[in-house]
């Protein structure tokens, strides 16, 4: 029974987490970076819920709920910051947000 075993859920969650991490590492589009972080949070939610089921305790569920709320909070700040950045730079490339580093490398 695949659907009834903890391990299969963890496998899915880890895959998602890895994909999210990949996105953060290898993409330059700040939207995708943000979404990757959200994806990782989701993967962790899945772990939490599977663990809640595993331990047969509601704590896992509550942690997942908290994580969702935290994700929402981060989303607000993140998106508003993206708007500010895009208006300044007219680009979504995370690499160009490096004025600080460039100035020093003169």
């Amino acid at each position: 029974m695949i659907a009834g075993s903890l391990f299969s859920y963890i496998v899915v969650a880890m895959l998602l987490l890895s994909i999210g991490l990949l996105g953060v590492i290898s993409r330059k589009n700040i939207f995708v970076i943000y979404m990757s972080i959200e994806l990782m949070l989701n993967a962790i939610n899945l772990i939490f819920i599977a663990l809640g089921r595993h331990h047969h305790s509601m704590s896992g569920h509550i942690m997942a709920m908290m994580v969702i709320a935290i994700a929402a909070a981060e989303a607000a700040v993140f998106l508003s910051l993206i708007v500010v950045l895009y208006r300044r730079k007219k680009s979504l490339d995370s690499d160009i947000f490096r004025t600080l580093a460039q100035k020093e490398s003169l």
Binding site: F48, L51, E74, F78, L81, F97, R98, T99, L100
Partner: peptide
């Protein structure tokens, strides 16, 4: 703003690791 952005991205990423650790 750029400093804030860098801090935010990396901070969120590290937050994910914290959560993974807790999990």
């Amino acid at each position: 703003v750029e400093a804030s952005y860098q801090y935010l991205v990396l901070g969120s990423l590290s937050g994910v690791f914290f959560l993974l650790g807790s999990a």
